[in-house]
Design a protein around this nucleic acid. Structure first.
Length: 612
RNA sequence: GCUCCUGUAGUUCAACGGAUAGAACACGGGUUUGCGGAACCCGUGAUCUAGGUUCGAUUCCUAGCGGGAGCACCA
């Protein structure tokens, strides 16, 4: 039998530290106050100033049950615990007190009361040992759940009439990053996109293509191949041409309606064109996904599901879940739930967005049996998604409560607001191209010995890191002002700065010639390394928190803090030139940091380079 | 009109109801015969207004002022 083996090495140093602290405070409370009170680790904070301590324990909540002022509690506990620490024979931590080898280690060095706070100073030697051992486990920062949570993540979901724009980039990066973070937290993710491949907007590109596409002399219709145009851009040009044309000549609008009518009737010629144009667009989108490091497990075509939605709505009407309004539209009554009613099927029997979203949710749940489903959709749709989820619960689907909306804000550019319907959208490919061009110039200017290929490879990585980090560093909720130039800078909180730090650490580790192997570092003080050690210790909890809050920004900010600490460190502390003991210990730390940096960047969809 | 979101340095972003509100950019000053100076260090600078809740409010509540979005058979 395959016995389940627990990891020999603890994987969350911060949790172990907290356990040790909870245990010792519990001990102190018993000894000094004869109280069986326990302190909750979630109360722990970080002191405003590192000189004050590494972990702060606020004593406000204890003061109620002990009927003593918080300041007195802090002072008393500090005295009691310091006395115990100095006499190691009388005290052992109740939990997490030993390493894999079973040897006791000291994690806490001393306590200090500061007003109502009990501040704790960690022992850098103990923590370093914990961290270095934990990170030799290749799964550091990831959790394995006994039973995998099945999560469906729906994101991007584009139309097939134009290329992806800047908003899709944020959506895609958010979705992919959240997927990776959830995977690190032990979930099984199904990535899916819903393709809006039918409706009048698609017909608009088709009409323009039929009316204007053909060569005036040869009457031959162009294709993406014949014009050497990326498929989605090719189709998008006709969509733009349509919008332009109707400003002068609105008659095309009725052509588009006719086209839609024919499509609904299954007109062979229209269907064939529709299929071709959709394929062009989707092939183009696929190229952009690859550029963005996104992959999907499934694509759902709206044209495949909208008809089944109609049946579900009519069924719901029979069951009196829905009702007809004065004009004959079928509506879901939501006023009692504090929302406006929602039309779910038009009077003439044609479907609306909600029709297919209902059908989609039902069939998808049937097939994938998700424990939870997340929709990554812009905050403009907050009300709509709330309505959708409520409708599904009115339809008595028990899984309706497992649906969640990950809402994100609009992306602006310094020049002003961008929105696709107003024709001011910024095309994703063009933007990426522009960023790469800018990066190529920089790299080329700095490293003239590189080949053209190498320059392009680095520039590509830098450009992508720039946009990905910039988009993910902000909380999903808020609107975002994307400044391309700033994102490419190596100064400040940027992707390139993180790449630079990673490459530079790699360079130092390389020069160390593999001398970073784990050794017994217990006699080394780790004082100048303490900030980094503490940051590395908190990585697993950062990943866990980012997963709980579905927020890559938490990882992004953590990585910047780490990078900053590392830059500071190797600027002031010699590594390669240091005496053997220090050298080995420092290399071990940098090597560990490089692994965490790389892992963290991967969670943000960024692949770091070892040379740049 | 109704609903939701939002208001923090000049700018872009942080801060489970906790200590002196953190960063980054910009601005001013400094660091290299050192492992990659695309770096590092120092400095100036902010909670929209008025009440309330409590030991304590950027955070919660109320009102006002400002910004964004939604409330259509639009996708």
């Amino acid at each position: 039998m395959n016995k389940k083996i627990l990891p020999a090495v603890p994987t969350d140093p911060l949790a172990i530290l907290h356990d040790a602290l909870v245990a010792s405070i519990g001990f102190g409370l018993r000894k000094s106050f004869k109280s069986k009170e326990k302190i909750d680790a979630s109360l722990f904070t970080t002191p405003p100033n590192p000189a004050m301590g590494d972990i702060a324990v606020p004593c406000f909540t204890l003061s109620k049950s002990l009927k003593t002022s918080p300041a007195v509690i802090a002072t008393t506990l500090a005295d009691t615990l310091n006395a115990i620490l100095s006499d190691s024979n009388t005290f052992s931590y109740e939990k997490g007190a030993s390493t894999a080898s079973g040897a006791p280690i000291s994690l806490l060095s001393r306590f200090e009361a500061a007003g109502p706070y009990l501040n704790v100073f960690l022992d850098p030697r103990g923590v370093a040992k914990l961290v270095l051992e934990a990170t030799t486990n290749t799964h550091y920062g990831t959790r394995a759940l006994k039973k995998k949570h099945r999560v469906v993540l729906e994101f991007v979901s584009p139309n097939t009439n134009k290329p992806l724009h800047l908003g899709h980039v944020r959506n895609g990066l958010l979705g992919e990053s959240i997927a990776r973070i959830m995977e690190a937290n032990g979930h099984e993710i199904h990535r899916t996109a819903v393709i809006n491949d039918r409706g009048v907007h698609i017909c608009k590109s088709m009409v323009a293509y039929m009316e204007k596409g053909a060569d005036s002399k040869t009457a031959i219709l162009p294709t993406p191949e014949s014009t050497h145009t990326k498929g989605d851009h090719f189709v998008g040009e006709y969509y733009v041409a349509f919008e332009k044309h109707i400003k002068k000549d609105p008659s095309w609008n009725s052509l588009a309606q006719e086209c839609l009518q024919k499509w609904e009737e299954g007109d062979a010629k229209i269907r064939a064109l529709w299929t071709a144009m959709n394929e062009w667009t989707l092939a183009g989108h696929q190229e952009t996904y690859i550029r963005l490091g996104i992959r999907f497990d499934s694509f759902i075509l709206e044209s495949d599901i909208f008809a089944s939605g109609r049946k579900m709505i009519l069924d719901g009407l029979k069951k009196k879940i829905f009702k007809k309004d004065a004009t004959g539209n079928i509506i879901a009554p939501l006023e009692k739930k504090g929302m406006p009613d929602k039309i779910v099927l038009r009077a003439d029997g044609t479907t609306v967005y909600a029709t297919q979203d209902i059908a989609l949710a039902v069939t998808r749940q049937k097939e994938l049996k998700a424990d939870e489903t997340f929709y990554v959709v812009m905050n403009e749709q907050n009300l709509y998604l709330k309505q959708l989820f409520t409708i599904l619960s009115l339809m008595k689907y028990p899984w309706a409560k497992t649906l969640h909306h990950i809402s994100y804000g609009m992306v602006h550019l310094p020049e002003g607001r961008m929105k696709s319907r107003e024709g001011t959208s910024v095309d994703a490919d063009n933007l990426l191209d522009a960023l790469e061009d800018m990066a190529i110039k920089e790299v080329g200017a700095r490293y003239d010995t590189l080949s053209r290929e190498e320059i392009e490879e680095r520039a590509q990585a830098i450009a992508f890191a720039a946009i990905a980090y910039y988009m993910l560093e902000v909380n999903p909720n808020s609107d975002l002002l994307y400044n391309p130039k700033e994102s490419l800078s190596f100064q400040g909180r940027t992707g390139p700065y993180l790449l630079y730090t990673y490459a530079r650490i790699c360079s130092i580790v390389r020069k160390g010639d593999g001398a970073h192997a784990l050794a017994d570092f217990s006699h080394y003080d780790w004082i100048s390394e303490k900030t980094i050690v503490t940051l590395l210790a908190s990585y697993p909890s950062v990943v866990a928190q980012a997963g709980m809050e579905t927020s890559p920004a938490i990882v992004a900010r953590y990585l910047f803090d780490l990078a900053q600490a590392l830059n500071d460190y190797y600027h002031h502390t010699p590594v390669i030139q240091a005496p053997t003991e220090e050298r080995t210990a420092r290399l071990a730390l940098l090597y560990t940091a490089s692994i965490i940096l790389k892992q963290g960047l991967t969670l943000l969809c960024i692949t770091p380079l070892e040379h740049m």
